[in-house]
Design a protein around this nucleic acid. Structure first.
Lengths: 104, 104
DNA sequence: AAGTCAGATAAGTGTATGCTTATATGTTCT
DNA sequence: AGAACATATAAGCATACACTTATCTGACTT
């Protein structure tokens, strides 16, 4: 099951922070570390997990590696969530509307 | 952070299966175990985790405990997902495919 | 009241996970 | 070519996690 990687990847708060940073704008691994009190290998390992979960993708830029959000992972979560549409509370009707709109 | 519990709870495939079963209809812990090759304590522990993540809630029914989906947990995921709405349109095709797949 | 049943909790154990330090790979600069 | 830099990988370690068996609590039954 592929969902597994996505949820596992997001189960770690540090990885969610990294993802959030990337969502605000792509950047390389060193830039990501700024203000995060995390070692270089740890960051590299986290990025590897996020990449495997299709939450993030990389692009070599010379000696840097630029990381950016990969919508694929988000789509997987949306897909999982959609299965339980029946239980979505009114409060997130906007989300449902958006999915429906895309479905047309 | 509350997201933490939700994603951690869903990071385990067994718990996702349990949740899925409950989404199809509320039932007690014993009924949940049917066809699942899981010990009674393990089930109880999983339900405890799901409950803590607000993905599930319980209702005492005499000597049974009926479990059902708690939309609160789903709302948390939807809320998290909504923050990255900006990235959805980039892969509308994937979302559409997922939705179509689900509708059958 | 005693027995039985549903479920929770306790304690122990093997494995997974996230970190560390050390080293390797690959790219740019002089 | 060699130094400097960005990132990845290796190996080791402490903690978290999912499971097990044993026991406990609370509710129905006779």
């Amino acid at each position: 099951m592929i969902d597994n990687d996505v949820f596992k990847a997001l189960a770690d708060p540090t990885r969610r922070t990294i993802f959030e940073k990337l969502a605000a704008g792509s950047m390389n691994a060193s830039a990501l570390r700024e203000g995060m009190d995390i070692s270089q290998p740890a960051m590299s390992q986290h990025l590897s997990v996020l990449r495997n979960a299709n939450l993030v993708r990389e692009e070599r830029k010379g000696r840097f590696v630029n990381y950016e959000v990969n919508p694929e992972g988000l789509a997987q979560i949306a897909g999982w969530l959609a299965k339980y549409r029946a239980y979505w509370p009114a409060r997130i009707d906007a989300l449902r509307a958006l999915l429906k709109e895309m479905d047309q």
